[in-house]
Write a protein that binds this DNA or RNA. Structure first.
Length: 274
DNA sequence: AACACGCCCTGCGCGC
DNA sequence: TGCGCGCAGGGCGTGT
């Protein structure tokens, strides 16, 4: 599910509901996420603490807490946050609940349990194993044609799988990798190192503008993504190739193809991507 | 050592 | 209507 635009959307919609609130109670209904949820550590870190901020790094959300700790959260494929009145019945797959001082509860719900809720020490972001190897943010100043060139140098692998490698650039997943390559007119199977400087620049520009637009549209809802306000994303209507196998390309009319790269579906237009 | 693969898990849509 | 299969937005361990 959630790639950078969706996670950013969750951050934007969750922030006003959390900012300045105090966490009164922490309840863990299911510990078996990607990594086991340490309920004791979670309670120690969060119970009684004010929420100072909510940041995003790659597809992770980081909740800054009063005191020494940060909550590191990941939505995996099916994770979502809901705000409910405290004490209302858990829905199926509600795993973690944070009761707030305004009578609301934040519920973390994740059917497939590929997500993560973990406690970090403040300042640990740069050295924590899950975060330390992440590449630059695609919308930040640390990413550009030059960094892409460095990452692509001497790599034989296709540009599409390079884009979904979080150590190269953080936050691009399967949908947006397909879409940005279509926008830039680049064939997903092209070797990363074979891109000309001009095409690298075009790709970077496409990544920036497409991710920004996707955030503005609330992200992509394929089946179940919703932001913290329960709203589905509208960018799905703007997808040009992802999930559109055998439909005509809106640019050139050729039929969109689906191939498999590194075990995942890639969609592209044979007419406008070379 | 840079890659691809298979797995973690649940749910859904499809074909029969 | 029911059942089995394939597939799904991610990430990580393993093997080549």
């Amino acid at each position: 599910m959630p790639e950078l635009p969706e996670v950013e959307r969750v951050r934007l919609t969750l922030l006003p509901l959390l900012a300045g609130r105090r966490i009164e109670k922490v309840r863990v209904a299911e510990t078996r996420l990607r990594a086991p949820v340490d309920a004791r550590a979670l309670r120690r870190a969060a119970a009684g603490k004010h929420i100072l901020g909510l940041r995003r790094r790659a597809k992770y959300l980081l909740v800054d807490l009063e005191g020494e700790k940060i909550l590191l959260m990941h939505l995996g494929m099916t994770g979502r946050f809901r705000i409910v009145r405290a004490g209302s019945r858990d829905q199926v797959h509600d795993h973690v609940a944070l009761a707030l001082d305004d009578g609301n509860e934040v519920r973390y719900n994740d059917a497939r349990r590929f997500g993560l809720v973990q406690v970090l020490a403040r300042g640990e972001e740069a050295i924590h194993p899950r975060l330390r190897d992440l590449g630059p943010e695609p919308l930040g100043a640390g990413f550009g044609p030059a960094t892409l060139a460095t990452s692509a140098r001497a790599r034989r692998r296709p540009i599409k799988t390079l884009l979904t490698d979080a150590t190269v650039v953080a936050g691009i997943g399967n949908i947006y990798a397909c879409e940005v390559l279509h926008a830039a007119g680049i064939h997903p199977g092209r070797t990363a190192s074979s891109l000309s400087p001009r095409r690298r620049e075009r790709l970077v520009a496409s990544i920036r503008s497409l991710l920004q637009e996707a955030i503005a549209f609330g992200g992509t809802t394929l089946r179940d993504f919703v932001d913290a306000g329960g709203e589905a994303g509208q960018y799905g209507e703007k997808l040009r190739v992802y999930g559109r196998e055998s439909e005509p390309c809106e640019t050139c009319g050729r039929r969109v193809r689906r191939i498999v790269q590194a075990g995942r579906s890639t969609f592209y237009c044979p007419g406008c991507q070379h």
